[in-house]
């Protein structure tokens, strides 16, 4: 047996321990598997855009792929699958996260909101409408993530969550242009719609804050 396989065995033993499972917030009975083994499948129950969903999933399925491949909610995009680009941003219990960096099984009983849950053609969320009004996108691939991020951002400011760009932590939180740009910087737009996105988000934030 070579070193790689030995490592796999060790990792499995380690992760099978109950303490490790608790830390990782995995459902009990889950073990990591080697590449050539059948993966365990577990049942995940969560609320997606207000609808209760029950899926039996390979434990390796990310929240992103659960949405896109299992629920066919393809509005959430896969740009890098590495947490670099932000195209997969969704709201988990109201907090924005990169869905590609999160396993679906970690979201048992969570409430997930995706771009499809914010609004749809004919009944758009104000942030979605503002993105159209300000032409705050081009190819559209980063757009759902930008919009989810922007919606969460407004809420963060409401709740007084500071950012790297916040000057005075004791003063009432406002959404300056610098603050907005800092908070949106996890969402890359290669088409370069940033200044239009800033205008769109400012407008909506001005109405909501």
């Amino acid at each position: 047996m070579d070193e790689t396989n030995a490592f796999e065995v060790n990792r499995r033993k380690l992760m099978a321990g109950s303490a490790a499972l608790a830390t990782l917030n995995l459902p009990s009975g889950v073990e990591a598997q080697a590449l050539d083994e059948e993966a365990p499948r577990v049942v995940v129950t969560f609320t997606i855009n207000g609808h209760l969903q029950r899926l039996q999933l390979d434990t390796r399925v990310t929240l992103l792929d659960a949405l896109r491949e299992h629920l066919h909610l393809t509005g959430t995009k896969k740009g890098c699958d590495h947490g670099h680009c932000g195209a997969c941003t969704v709201l988990a219990n109201g907090i924005r996260i990169n869905a590609c960096l999160s396993l679906a099984v970690m979201h048992d009983s969570d409430e997930i909101t995706t771009i499809e849950g914010l609004g749809r053609p004919g009944a758009l969320h104000p942030m979605q409408a503002a993105f159209i009004e300000y032409d705050a996108f081009q190819c559209g691939y980063c757009t759902p993530g930008q919009i989810c991020s922007a919606v969460a951002l407004v809420d963060e400011v409401k709740r007084g969550v500071p950012s790297h760009a916040t000057g005075d932590l004791t003063a009432p939180m406002t959404l300056s242009n610098v603050e907005l740009r800092e908070r949106m910087s996890g969402n890359i737009c290669r088409c370069g719609a940033y200044s239009n996105i800033a205008d769109a988000v400012s407008k909506v934030a001005g109405e909501m804050l």
């Binding site: 896109r68 066919h72 909610l73 393809t74 509005g75 959430t76 995009k77 896969k78 995706t114 771009i115 499809e116 914010l118 609004g119 749809r120 053609p121 004919g122 758009l124 979605q128 409408a129 993105f131 159209i132 009004e133 032409d135 996108f137 559209g140 691939y141 757009t143 759902p144 919009i147």
Partner: peptide
């Protein structure tokens, strides 16, 4: 004129190559 495909893009209902369910 605002983009006529805008509503599809901002709502995530415009299908890209990997999404043709």
């Amino acid at each position: 004129l605002r983009r006529i495909d805008g509503a599809r893009k901002v709502s995530g209902t415009a299908p890209y190559a990997y999404e043709r369910h």
